[in-house]
């Protein structure tokens, strides 16, 4: 049984309470008190599942700024490019596709970073992460790609996730 860690509970509580305030959007003292009680109960149960590593990285300003840059600038650019590409293929008769599953090496180490990169890749249309495998210390993603232009390996990796991986790497190591 894993020991309950106090910082994990605190940070889970902050996230839950922020969601409560955003959803109710009323600042009466009764609403806030009810929200605090519910959030604390949830945090006591779920804190140890929600936070695995250091709890307060989010309050590190450098990482926070990097996260905001990633969410507001790096990721939307890739998203719009990929969306436009797939929309063109859809309206162009859906014939000029060349699907395949490629295997791509990834340099991130932490669980959060890998999950965030995999979800970013899946969110960009045209690529879906299908599985993660680890071989000899190196992590690999299996990615279904709608238009294979390079065989597996580093070249395909740069085409799929070049800028995304750099952006995520600045947030999580």
């Amino acid at each position: 049984m894993q020991k309950m860690r106090f910082p994990a509970v605190i940070s889970t509580f902050i996230v839950c309470f922020a969601f409560w305030v955003l959803l109710t959007w009323s600042f009466e003292i009764q609403e806030l008190a009810a929200g605090a009680v519910v959030s604390l109960a949830v945090a006591l149960f779920a804190g140890r599942f929600f936070v695995h590593t250091k709890s307060f990285w989010f309050f590190n300003p450098v990482k926070l700024v990097n996260l905001i840059i990633y969410v507001l600038f790096i990721f939307p650019v890739e998203l719009i490019k990929a969306n436009w590409d797939v929309a063109k293929r859809c309206f162009g008769g859906c014939k000029n596709v060349n699907p395949g599953i490629v295997k791509v090496p990834v340099d991130l180490e932490s669980d959060y970073g890998q999950a965030m990169l995999a979800n970013s890749i899946t969110l960009t249309p045209g690529t879906i992460t299908m599985d993660i495998a680890e071989e000899e210390g190196q992590t690999y993603y299996y990615i279904h790609w709608i238009d294979v232009t390079a065989p597996s390996g580093k070249e395909a990796g740069d085409a799929i996730k070049g800028t995304l991986e750099k952006g995520v790497g600045r947030i999580f190591k």
Partner: peptide, 12 residues
């Protein structure tokens, strides 16, 4: 699989 790729367009 290609159909799923197209559906990602809608949800993003």
């Amino acid at each position: 699989f290609c159909r799923m790729q197209a559906s990602t367009c809608i949800s993003t």
